[in-house]
Design a protein around this nucleic acid. Structure first.
Lengths: 197, 197
DNA sequence: CTTGCATATTAGACCGGCCGGTCATATATT
DNA sequence: AATATATGACCGGCCGGTCTAATATGCAAG
């Protein structure tokens, strides 16, 4: 990784943390550059614009998230439903260790705030969402084929539903400083959704 | 209702529609007053500040939402689980008729964007959320007592889980211009969560 | 029914400050 | 010498909010 790439990454990470708690419009370029400790010109040397910057943040974290999820949901050493449960258990554990992780909601939130006008941001976030659904669906199809869930269950819809719930639970953590909502999601996913599906 | 109250309401409704698609920080006072057609001074005659304005929006829609939900979930002519299913079926129908309704996500989104700094907004939104959970829980407890759902199910957690999913589904409608996500939520609520709980 | 006054409301120019973004210049690096 | 990167003063424009003046309205006294 070149020096330039490292510096970009540092700015991306800082921007992510700031925007995560203050939103896109609530986070100024000046705040970002002061936090990183670079002059204004450097920011625009590394990034084309604020919108381009947001998209780079989105893509950086989306790549990591999708890789994580793909690894977990295709792990051949576990039966499919266990993979899903383990994935979310690990996400909760990761959050407790290091509250930085929760990328998922970042894209959704960015979209809520500015998606209606910044279509590039919206498209980037939309793609991640579609990919996530696809990974879940593949895993659930496998479970369905094995008879681990009712064959009548619409796995595509169930995939979406799981992600809705997860994102809803992520929304609830803001400021609460504990992971109760994530734990509740896990419990219900296990006891209600998957155990009985 | 006095003239003053009517005018306030008009500004509140306009602010709601603007902030719904552009967020709090993305919606300027100037834009609001130009849309309503009033001078700046009038806005600050009716409202103390932008933050106070947001809280009034929040409260106005929260009152209507909670009233709706309370009516639906205590309807004695229906068994408890049917009340929940009917409530969300009606919410979807309302959305299709008039996409203005979705208050629910508004509070959550406002919180995501500015809750970390504007604690009054956050508290207002938090209360609505707690009330919503309570109404659902009361209904599910009734279902549990009748044996309509497993007595081992934690109704409080299930209430939260339902609301997570619903809010997650609401997040997905932005810009999609169709209610597929809400329909999916309904289907899964019926076929997976309640039928088997 | 009119007048006169207090109060409610309208009106928009104006404020300092921050916004995203540009640019010419300086300094490293090769 | 040429190219890559660093630097921060500067730009027009919009931000939330204030203020003073004008005008509409309600009401009490005659």
């Amino acid at each position: 990784m070149t020096k330039k790439e490292l510096k970009k990454l540092e700015i991306i990470k800082t921007g992510f943390f700031l925007m995560k708690s203050k939103g896109y419009n609530g986070t100024g370029i000046n705040e970002i550059i002061h936090t990183v400790g670079i002059p204004k010109g450097s920011f625009y040397y590394y990034f084309e614009s604020k919108e381009g910057f947001a998209i780079e943040i989105l893509n950086y974290y989306a790549d990591r998230l999708l890789q994580n999820v793909a690894d977990a949901l295709t792990d051949p050493s576990q039966p499919p439903l266990q993979r899903i449960l383990k994935l979310y258990k690990r996400q909760v554990a990761d959050y407790l260790d290091n509250s930085s992780f929760s990328y998922g909601a970042f894209g959704t939130r960015l979209c809520q705030e500015i998606g209606s006008r910044h279509t590039l941001v919206k498209n980037a976030a939309e793609k991640v969402y579609k990919d996530l659904i696809g990974l879940h669906n593949q895993c659930l199809l496998e479970a369905s084929a094995k008879g681990d869930i009712g064959r009548d269950i619409d796995t595509a819809k169930l995939s979406e539903f799981i992600i809705y719930s997860w994102e809803g639970a992520l929304m609830r953590l803001n400021g609460s400083k504990n992971a109760d909502s994530l734990q509740t999601f896990n419990d219900m996913l296990q006891d209600v959704v998957l155990k009985r599906a």
